[in-house]
Design a protein around this nucleic acid. Structure first.
Length: 292
RNA sequence: GCAGGGUUACUCAAGCGGUCAACGAUGGCAGACUGUAAAUCUGCUGGCUUCGCCUUCGAAGGUUCGAAUCCUUCACCCUGCA
């Protein structure tokens, strides 16, 4: 069966960071003979463990997890690669008679799979470097000269302009929601989320986040992509001595809260999500879905 | 007690007679989003019956056609001399 035409049942559990979706997914997975596919742009990187809240070895022993530790921090990663690997993993899980559960908070990655995004060819590094050095005005000038259609494009977002030039004006497309898919959204009150984020950041610090960051900085330097992520980048000033550990902690918490907000905004526009607040509802939803 | 500096919207901070409901930053809210997405970008952020009106720039008076901007007094804070 071609990966793209795989129509076996698929469940996606989405939500803000620290909303409790991972634990929920574990329970559903154990109950329904499933395997989990992480839908997270940071847990794909190997060696970045504590700060990304990556599932532990014990959790992975309880339920098989896919798409973790598959990217080299030095090389970066992309949504297109994510889609390809996830579609394949999902088909593989289904072919073994198990239920794939997509779990995560990276909206673009999730939607790329659920709505069959058609990614355009990747950029060539040399061209990107060149385009990156240009100003927005210069990029617009080039777009004008190439007579590319800018309809609906955010002309103030440099990355979008560069991408338009790279694809020579081609636009990617988005399909309908994948058939036989159940999307569950975990939502909790803002106040409670903030509490859980604080608790989780403190747990990360207790688990040795500082030490992990120090080692990763040593191994990869501060410029690799995942090093700029929440829970890592904030430590740069701390190791420089210009910021206390408490200030670092607060910055990490603040950045996480902001991330949660952005995630909420992304998921809000997806009307196919079944938002739930109690776990009991989920078992019922999944049961009904599978018996259809 | 004398001399000088300060008091601006949630916070920080510009403004120094009209173009000021008041630059900017942070914070907050909302949104966009297809090969960097924990990224990148956008809008709003005194009140309201929102092409306009109302109430603001420590307080109260005053000068002026017109004041956050000038003058007087008062309150509080900081600095130097006592």
């Amino acid at each position: 069966m071609a990966a793209g035409s795989d129509n076996a049942p698929l469940i996606a559990i989405v939500g803000e960071t620290a909303s409790g979706k991972s634990e929920l997914a574990m329970q559903i997975a154990e109950k329904f003979n499933s395997e989990i596919i992480a839908a997270d742009s940071w847990t794909v990187y190997k060696d970045f463990n504590i700060g990304t809240a990556k599932p532990s070895a014990q959790e992975r022993a309880r339920v098989p997890h896919h798409l973790l530790d598959i990217a080299d921090p030095r090389k970066g990663f992309s949504a297109a690669e994510y889609k390809r690997l996830t579609v394949a993993a999902s088909a593989d899980i289904s072919s073994r008679g198990k239920l794939p559960i997509l779990v995560g908070g990276t909206g673009l990655y999730i939607d790329s799979v659920l709505f069959d995004y058609s990614f355009l060819p990747p950029a060539t590094p040399e061209i990107r470097v060149t385009l990156n050095s240009l100003s927005i005005e210069e990029l617009l000038q080039k777009i004008l000269e190439a007579d590319l259609d800018t309809l609906g494009l955010d002309l103030r977002n440099k990355r979008r302009l560069i991408r338009l030039l790279e694809t020579n004006g081609a636009r990617a497309t988005r399909g309908e929601l994948r058939p036989n898919t159940l999307i569950i959204g975990v939502q909790i009150p803002h106040e409670k989320l903030r509490e859980q984020i604080t608790t989780r950041v403190d747990a990360m610090l207790t688990a040795g986040l500082e030490n992990e960051v120090a080692q990763l900085a040593q191994k990869y330097g501060w410029n690799v992509e995942p090093m700029k992520g929440i829970g890592y980048g904030e430590f740069h000033d701390y190791f420089n001595g210009t910021q206390s550990l408490e200030q670092t902690r607060e910055r990490v918490i603040g950045a996480t809260v902001n991330l949660a907000k952005k995630q909420r905004t992304w998921f809000k526009r997806n009307y196919s999500i079944h938002w739930i607040s109690k776990q009991a509802e989920v078992v019922e939803l999944v049961t009904t879905f599978l018996n259809k």
